[in-house]
Structure formats: structure tokens, C-alpha cells
Design a protein around this nucleic acid. Structure first.
Length: 438
RNA sequence: GUGGGUGUAGCUCAGCUGGUUAGAGCACUAGGUUGUGAUCCUAGGGGUCGCGGGUUCGAAUCCCGUCACUCACCCCA
């Protein structure tokens, strides 16, 4: 193929493809602003070191790297959180806390392309920095849910699975599986769904079996409420202060979600682990209930990350929600269609010598806040009407002899074909009244 | 990285067992229609049949290679 096409994993977003994505942006922005988050932006290019030091190996392996003319090693940003952490850390003392920011960056990851996974995509990021309250965790989840509700998704379609890394770590610690060993335990658990169960059991029992049986741990991880889990753990393990605190934190997040009125979307699910290295507390993922798609959204608490950029430690919680899986989900549920109720008017001339008048009326309509279109070159009226129809106009304003004689024009509604005569003066003074729209 | 599927017009595809000048629908442009669109009718533009090689009198079709896209696995923001 000699033609140069769009790079693998990227999209040429023609207007008809970008339209539904823009609708998603609108929902994201509206939800963010309603919940008190402010939009920010950061550079697409970052120093490679930003990710080498702050992100997990997984992400670093997928980085798009480049060297600039000055020999600097750069990368296209694969996630937003390190940039956010840097920006906030640099001004931490000047910013009122809690800091509530959001953004809709384009991100880049050189991963295998498949359903729901591209190499360039949009991702809505929402973060609260400077609060360790479980209510902050809950509010972040709430914004995500509300945006999805804006798009027509309900608790019928999606559920939010909530876990807590700190809680799992505390359980393991209480069972005497400590620091260094925990990574290995996580890795095994993460594979739980994919490995044959006896194979998993063998590996687990080799390393940890004497301290904590796999069956026991899995039973706990299946718990659907924090109370159920806590009861089970108390019966088998000696409670530590950390275990109590982590249990309380998880419970507080769940209650705050109920208080916000979105408890029906949320459930405890300790099987959620999350790949990113920097999560320290509650973590969560949004899934579609049909389980046809990958996670729509993922995030959690990262209390240690800010400290790596500045002298000051700041608690933080946030998530990322990509446009790709969400679009697939909306399409599956027939929610992609956009009811375009906006008013568009096409201005046509029926007789010669009115081109200037067409432009005057078009400019006047636009100044009055109405989207108006016209043909650059003179054309037969029939052609202009055809053109108006193709452009999706609601109404056509036809200038003709009546314009010259009475200063009036014909307003024709394309849906019904009916037309009325109004004066140009009144049309421009109040277009929405003069055009019997809707 | 592993495995499968698919490459023919802008899009969806037909063209199977080789045989004139490669087709259809949709879309696009123009005309039918110099003061009234949608439907309808007519015409037109648009193809190195992914690319390279081989077999053959003859290849979109058969063979080999290659590339691209895509789905799944692995992995996972």
C-alpha cells in the first residue's frame, strides 16, 4: 500500500465520528464542573524520566519515546497523573486544599491494538489532592457515575467495583506475609481467574500455604460487603491497628457513596488490583454489567506520589476514564445516537440581484445566535433547498420579490414543507420567534 | 510476542471451479426541474483487484512470499 494511512492504533476522526466523542466530552465536563472540579492542561511531551521513575514497568514498556534536537529523551504522555503530581507539587503551598482538578488529555501507549484498546485515545482524569477523607474517594467515584448517567447509563448497565490495597496488605501482614513477599502474592492472585485452580493452589501453598490458606483468602476476596469480610477476618486472624484502620477506611468509602445516593452502583470487590504501582489505598474500576467490555474507568488513592515530586507529602485520589471502551458501551446500548435539536437556518435567494441581501441576513442571524448557512455562488432555488436539506437545516429563509416589495421573506420549515411570510426586520430581531421551530 | 480472519470503487460487498473492456447497492457530481428540497428517472466521475514474484496463450481468481488491517491470547492503563 503506497498510500500513507493513519498510524496503527490511531483514528482519523471525521466529523461524524468526532460528534459522539464530543458528546462524551460534554458529559465529562458538565459532571466535573457541577462537582466543583476545574479544568487544567499539561504538555503532551514529557521527559522520559518522569515515567521511568514514577510509573510502573508496564507503562514504561509502552512509552512512545523520542529524542529531540538537543538530545533530550522525551516521551508522549501515557498517563496524566505524573504530570498532575509535578504541577501540583510545584505550587503546593499556593493552592487551596482540597485541590479538585480535571482534564481530558490525549494519551499515547504503544500497546497491542484490539477491541477497546488503541494507541492514541482520550482519557478523562479527575483528581482530588490534599484530602485523606474517604469522602474524597467517594466524591471522585460519584463524579464518574454522574457523567455516565448524563450519557444515559444507569445502575442497570454499569457497576463500580471497589477494593482497597491497604486492606489486602493489612490482611496479608496480619497473616505474617510481609512487605517483600506481598508483591508475589498479588501477582498470583491477579492470575487467579486465568490459571487452572489446582496449579494456582500448588504455587500458593508452596510459598504461603502454612500462614494463610488460599481457600480462606479467596473466600474473603469474594465478600460482597465490608461487614461480611471483617467478620470473617476477625474469626481467623489477630486484628492489628492497621487492619482495623483499613477496614474502617473501606467501610467509610462505601457509606459515603450511599450517602451520595449512588450506593446501588457500587459493590465491594477485593479482586480488583490495578496495575499501576503508585496506588496506596482504595482502588476501583467501573465495568459494564454485561461483561462484554474491559473496564470503563479505573482509579484509586495515591497518597505517596506527590511526596516524590516535592518535599511535602499530599494525599490524593483520582481516576481515568477512556473514550474508547465507553464509546463501545454506549453503542451497544443504543445510546450513541444524538438528538440534534439545534436550530440551523439556510438562507436562499429565489431571484437575481439579492446576493448581498443573503449575506446581510446570514450575518444578522448569526449575530442573533442562530447557526446560518448559505451558498457562496448563486444557484437555482431548487439546488439551494437540496443543499439546505443535506446540511441538516431546520428551516430555509427564502428571499425573493417579496423582499424587494415588502421587506419580507418566506420561512419554510423543511420537515413539514409549510412556509410563512415574515418581515426581515422581525426575523433578525428575534429569529427564534419568527421561525416556528419545534 | 503467539494464533486465527480479512485485503476488489469513498463505504458494504459480489465476482466460486482461470477466459472479452472488473460489477452492484449506498455515497458523491450533474441533468430531468431558471420561485420550492426529500421520492423518482437519467447520465457521469471514481479501481496499478494490498504489494512482489511464479505457473499459464491468458490470473482479481491457482501457487509462493511479503505487507497492512482486524479479532483473540499474553499483558494492562
Amino acid at each position: 500500500m503506497a498510500k500513507i494511512q493513519a498510524v496503527k492504533g490511531t483514528r482519523d476522526l471525521y466529523p461524524e465520528l468526532f460528534r459522539p466523542i464530543r458528546r462524551i466530552f460534554d458529559a465529562w465536563r458538565r459532571a466535573s464542573e457541577l462537582h466543583g472540579f476545574e479544568e487544567f492542561e499539561s504538555p503532551t511531551l514529557e521527559y522520559l524520566d518522569l515515567y521511568r521513575e514514577k510509573s510502573g514497568d508496564e507503562l514504561v514498556g509502552q512509552l512512545y519515546r523520542l529524542t529531540d534536537a538537543g538530545g533530550r529523551e522525551l516521551a508522549l504522555r501515557p498517563e496524566m497523573t505524573p504530570s498532575l503530581a509535578r504541577m501540583v507539587a510545584a505550587k503546593i503551598n499556593a493552592l487551596a486544599k482540597p485541590i479538585k482538578w480535571f482534564c481530558i488529555p490525549k494519551l499515547f501507549r504503544g500497546e497491542n491494538v484490539q477491541r477497546g484498546r488503541l494507541r492514541e485515545f482520550f482519557q478523562w482524569n479527575v483528581d482530588v489532592i490534599g484530602s485523606d477523607s474517604p469522602v474524597a474517594d467517594a466524591e471522585v467515584i460519584l463524579v464518574g457515575i454522574e457523567a455516565l448517567r448524563n450519557l444515559g447509563l444507569t445502575a442497570e448497565h454499569i457497576s463500580v467495583h471497589i477494593s482497597n490495597r491497604r486492606l489486602i496488605a493489612a490482611i496479608l501482614s496480619a497473616a505474617k506475609i510481609d512487605g517483600g513477599e506481598q508483591a508475589g502474592a498479588y501477582a498470583l492472585l491477579d492470575k487467579a481467574g486465568k490459571m487452572k485452580s489446582d496449579e494456582l493452589a500448588t504455587k500458593w501453598n508452596e510459598k504461603f500455604g502454612e500462614r494463610l490458606s488460599l481457600d480462606q483468602l479467596r473466600e474473603w476476596m469474594e465478600a460482597e460487603t465490608i461487614g461480611q469480610l471483617a467478620d470473617g477476618v476477625r474469626r481467623k486472624l489477630t486484628m492489628t491497628d492497621e487492619l482495623e484502620a483499613a477496614t474502617q477506611q473501606t467501610s467509610d468509602v462505601m457509606s459515603a457513596l450511599s450517602a451520595f445516593g449512588v450506593g446501588d452502583f457500587c459493590k465491594l470487590d477485593l479482586k480488583i488490583v490495578r496495575g499501576l504501582a503508585y496506588y496506596t489505598g482504595p482502588v476501583f474500576e467501573f465495568f459494564d454489567k454485561s461483561q462484554n467490555e474491559r473496564a470503563i474507568c479505573g482509579g484509586g488513592r495515591y497518597d505517596d506520589l506527590l511526596g516524590k515530586f516535592g518535599k511535602q507529602q499530599e494525599p490524593a485520589v483520582g481516576f481515568g476514564m477512556g473514550d474508547v471502551v465507553l464509546s463501545l458501551l454506549l453503542e451497544e446500548n443504543g445510546l450513541l445516537a444524538e438528538a440534534n435539536m439545534s436550530l440551523m437556518v439556510f438562507v436562499a435567494d429565489a431571484v437575481e440581484g439579492l446576493r448581498d441581501e443573503v449575506q446581510r441576513v446570514v450575518a444578522g442571524l448569526r449575530r442573533a445566535g442562530v447557526q446560518a448557512e448559505f451558498n457562496y455562488a448563486p444557484q437555482a432555488l431548487g439546488k439551494q433547498l437540496k443543499q439546505a436539506d443535506k446540511r441538516g437545516a431546520t428551516a430555509v429563509v427564502i428571499l425573493g420579490d417579496e423582499t424587494r416589495e415588502r421587506g419580507a421573506c418566506q420561512v419554510k420549515l423543511l420537515a413539514s414543507g409549510n412556509s410563512t411570510e415574515v418581515t426581515i426586520e422581525s426575523l433578525l430581531a428575534n429569529p427564534r420567534a419568527a421561525i416556528p421551530f419545534g
